[in-house]
Amino acid sequence: MLDANSTGSVPLATQIPLTFLMSGLAFAIMLGNAVVILAFVVDKNLRLRSNYYFLNLAISDFFVGMISIPLYIPHTLFDWNFGSGLCIFWLITDYLLCTASVYNIVLISYDRYQSVLNAVS
């Protein structure tokens, strides 16, 4: 019988395409957020107060694609058990980065709300 938290064994015919799909997703996340970071660094006109929230969101999402997702793939698909230290590192960074992304989205929403509320007529 499977545990409540176990996903069971995934057939090899399914593991290979899922591995490539998830790796491609992680690469697309890193590439897209790297372009946002690069645009912010190169174009000085983008350096407005409200755009720093987008930069912060891009940085946190870049690290989600670089750290969290690549460690999640072998853990989920291949039942790879991390060592204690790597598991703790992965959990801490995953929770920290995902929480940072959510807080950044909240801050961006609040900033947009304030800009509409206090718009110059």
Rank of each mutant, 00 (worst) to 15 (best):
V10T: 14
Y113P: 06
S115E: 10
L77F: 00
D61Q: 15
G32P: 00
H75C: 08
I108V: 03
T19R: 04
V36R: 12
L57Y: 07
F54I: 01
L96F: 14
I37Q: 04
I105R: 14
S6Q: 11
L107H: 11
T76E: 06
V102K: 11
L38Q: 14
L55K: 09
I105C: 08
G8F: 07
T19S: 15
L71Y: 11
N118C: 12
V35P: 00
I105A: 09
Y72N: 10
N56K: 07
A28S: 13
F78P: 02
P74N: 04
V36L: 08
I67K: 08
S68M: 11
R49G: 07
F62C: 01
S50E: 15
A100N: 06
Y110N: 10
F62K: 05
C98V: 08
R49E: 13
P74M: 06
I59M: 14
G83C: 08
K44F: 00
H75K: 11
L48K: 15
R49Q: 13
I88K: 10
S109K: 09
D3F: 05
V64D: 01
N33V: 02
L48T: 15
W90N: 09
F63V: 06
S9L: 11
N51H: 12
T76A: 08
I92Y: 13
Q114K: 15
M66F: 15
S23T: 15
N104I: 01
S109W: 12
L18R: 06
F78Y: 15
G83A: 09
Y72W: 10
S101K: 14
S115Y: 04
P70A: 07
L77Y: 02
V35F: 03
P70C: 03
D43T: 03
F63E: 09
P70Y: 04
I67W: 03
N45M: 05
C87W: 12
D79Y: 08
S6R: 07
L107A: 07
A119N: 13
L86G: 05
A26S: 13
V41T: 07
N5Q: 10
R112G: 05
D79W: 10
R47I: 03
Y52V: 05
S121K: 12
W90Y: 14
N56L: 12
